[in-house]
Design a protein around this nucleic acid. Sequence first.
DNA 1: TAAAAAATTTAGACAAATCTAAAAATTTGT
DNA 2: ACAAATTTTTAGATTTGTCTAAATTTTTTA
Lengths: 219, 219
Amino acid sequence: MTHSEENYIKAIFHLANTGIEVISTNALAEKMETKPSSVTDMMRRLSKKGLVHYKKYQGVSLTTLGTKTALSIIRKHRLWEVFLVEKLGFTWDEVHEIAEQLEHIKSEKLIDKLDELLDFPKFDPHGDPIPGKNGEFMEHDNQLLSQLPIGSVALCVGVKDSSAVFLRFLDKNSIALGNKMKIIEKEEFDNSLRILLNERELQISQQIASNLYVKKIEL
Amino acid sequence: MTHSEENYIKAIFHLANTGIEVISTNALAEKMETKPSSVTDMMRRLSKKGLVHYKKYQGVSLTTLGTKTALSIIRKHRLWEVFLVEKLGFTWDEVHEIAEQLEHIKSEKLIDKLDELLDFPKFDPHGDPIPGKNGEFMEHDNQLLSQLPIGSVALCVGVKDSSAVFLRFLDKNSIALGNKMKIIEKEEFDNSLRILLNERELQISQQIASNLYVKKIEL
DNA sequence: TAAAAAATTTAGACAAATCTAAAAATTTGT
DNA sequence: ACAAATTTTTAGATTTGTCTAAATTTTTTA
Ligand SMILES: [Mn+2]
Ligand SMILES: [Mn+2]
Ligand SMILES: [Mn+2]
Ligand SMILES: [Mn+2]
């Protein structure tokens, strides 16, 4: 498999996990930042290799083999991200781009040894679950901060948007994974939240709240 | 730069360091396991990018920029090899192929952090020197075991051939870098050597002796 | 339900990296 | 010195991955 093919497979997997079952040529083109005609070409290639189901004008979806492949690439991506943060001291907003390259390194043994070195982590630095060696994938059933009712207490467990801009915004406001937060008030006008975090009150926009995954703590 | 361009640059560097100044199209084709016509094409591309001096029928050599580029790739290759052995527990015969992939990862910061994690090693697992961050390259002036006179005592410091077959042969015979060896006898018939290594006498063929770098110990 | 709009595919082109076969230049040997 | 051998380049083709522009199919809408 080429890097390009792997990137398409990964993109299809991610789109499929946003709810959509059948992915349109245009949606995939947008995700891949390329042209629909290029997508059509690539879908034919991937289809011939048995990685996707594709019939023209009907959209595309991953085959069992395609899903297995996607999970293996995502596993590598996320393990490398953990390595970069835990062993090399990178910050969580720096690792994605480098992992985009490292995820294409081909060596089963390498990734197993890396997993071991990192002590078999279950989540990457952004709170995303790391697929297992045999393709086990734990979809996290987390809620978004924006979905919690007033008075809730919750642990921050992940980010939905893991762009560097958003991550640096969180750093600036001392919001990190593992933090406990309590929702004090919801502003009707703009759906912003007033939360208590680290003994400190914080005003958070709807935009932010709907990009933070939390796990509710029952009191 | 593409992976392919980087691999050509590295190959030219390695050929240049076997003594030859001007590298022929055929020599490079053989090293790259490709056809001379492909080499001609690539030399034109690299020449246009200012990485090599190339005039047709005149052979090729690296420019200053080309040399700098080669050293940077070799630095990455060798640091990754150290990582694989020291941190992931790979054996020295397994690391070259994986490093061939990892050497193409683009991130200055990554390689600096890796260097730090490894405690700034000066040699890779095969005894080859690791170029510095600013292109400092220490050519090792080691002798080959086959060149030493009888009675010499020397430290084994590197391998000339670092193919997996040769490395596994050394493992099988418990010959490792850092070992002290004394030359007891030289067989006139086939130039094989009888050496003392780890309290053990060992018969070594000329083939083997001429692929082991040693550093003489003055008594 | 037919025209308009949107989505998708096809056709044709291009750059990178490779190949084979043929032509041209250089080197070697007598 | 010149023919033969060798090396190197050129010409033309192929694959991958991309693009633009045009054609086709599907969906929407009036
Ligand atoms: Mn990532
Ligand atoms: Mn990628
Ligand atoms: Mn190597
Ligand atoms: Mn390489």
